[in-house]
């Protein structure tokens, strides 16, 4: 069969393969170029220094600290709400009209551009609630942004729990809450955690909403409270990219390496968790 394939068909296959492999080549180019540009700047002092007007002395300490504050706070807000919403939709909502409306609404929210979440955060958290341009305002904004991811992943995880286990639990006289707490949630936990890691990985790279909410781009201190002003790693990178001097572009490349390495570790952890989950399935 393959020997009889026409030249035009073979050519078309090649074009299709090139269209698939080409973008992956671009990805490799992107990573390779960033590594070449930034690897020289990577050092302990780059991680442990404050930003500076002198590119060679500048570092990302406030940016990394700000990102850590943001991510932990975001997770603390988004995870309970996201898992709660997933539990409601999967375990209580059923086919009710309200559940349908919430489902459609979540699908719509997933398509809203992230910069508009920034405007929401600016209008509601920074202004109306008076939180100012603070860690908590940024984290609350990011939490709403990643909520659809957490909800979708948690629902999928809840669906993998066999109904027989729920029924067995009820048959033993357990209440709905007891069933959720002792049977359903423990089984769904790896899947929920996978979703949580993916959501955090998304939040770490987000730039536009934080700029709109008012992250500062030149910060010479480490945030020490939820109401402190802050910067974040992507914001610091943006600040350096916006400068014309070559030396700052190298700093940006080094910052990108740190950002991508962090995301790589997080995603690897998510993949490992998913594997463990898959291995457990019958």
């Amino acid at each position: 069969m393959s020997a009889r394939r026409r030249p035009s068909e073979r050519l078309f296959r090649l074009v299709c393969l090139a269209a698939t492999a080409g973008p992956l080549g671009v990805l490799a180019w992107l990573v390779g170029d960033t590594l070449v540009d930034g690897i020289d700047r990577l050092s302990w002092s780059f991680l442990a220094s404050y930003p500076s007007r002198h590119a060679e002395q500048a570092g990302i300490l406030p940016a990394v600290a700000g990102s850590l504050w943001l991510i932990v706070t975001t997770a603390l807000i988004a995870l309970p709400i996201g898992v709660g919403a997933a539990l409601f939709l999967e375990e209580y909502g059923g086919r009710s009209r309200l559940a349908r409306i919430i489902e459609i609404n979540i699908a719509n929210l997933a398509g809203v551009p992230s910069v508009l979440y920034g405007l929401l955060g600016l209008g509601i958290f920074v202004r109306t609630l008076g939180l100012g341009r603070s860690v908590i305002a940024g984290a609350a904004t990011l939490a709403l942004l990643v909520l659809p991811i957490v909800i979708l992943a948690s629902r999928e995880a809840l669906r993998t729990v066999p109904d027989g286990l729920r029924e067995a639990s009820y048959a033993l006289g357990a209440t709905t809450f007891q069933t959720l707490r002792h049977v359903v949630l423990p089984m769904a936990l790896p899947g929920i955690l996978t979703g949580a890691i993916l959501a955090i990985s998304r939040a770490i790279g987000e730039t536009a909403p934080l700029i709109v909410v008012g992250a500062l781009s030149y910060v010479t201190f480490v945030p020490d409270a939820l109401d402190a002003p802050f910067t974040a790693l992507p914001i610091q990178i943006y600040n350096w990219v916006s400068r014309p001097q070559e030396a700052f572009l190298k700093n940006a490349a080094a910052g990108i390496i740190v950002l991508l390495a962090t995301m790589l570790v997080l995603n690897a952890a998510a993949v490992l968790l998913r594997h463990r989950l898959d291995a457990r399935k019958p």
Partner: peptide
């Protein structure tokens, strides 16, 4: 207690609705 759990989970799910309303309200006003 069960009813309280239900109410808590329902309010989690309603956060998404509040988010949409919030976006519309901020943009519109």
């Amino acid at each position: 207690f069960e009813r309280a759990v239900y109410a808590a989970l329902l309010s989690c799910a309603l956060v998404s609705i509040v988010t949409t309303v919030g976006i519309l309200y901020v943009l519109a006003s």
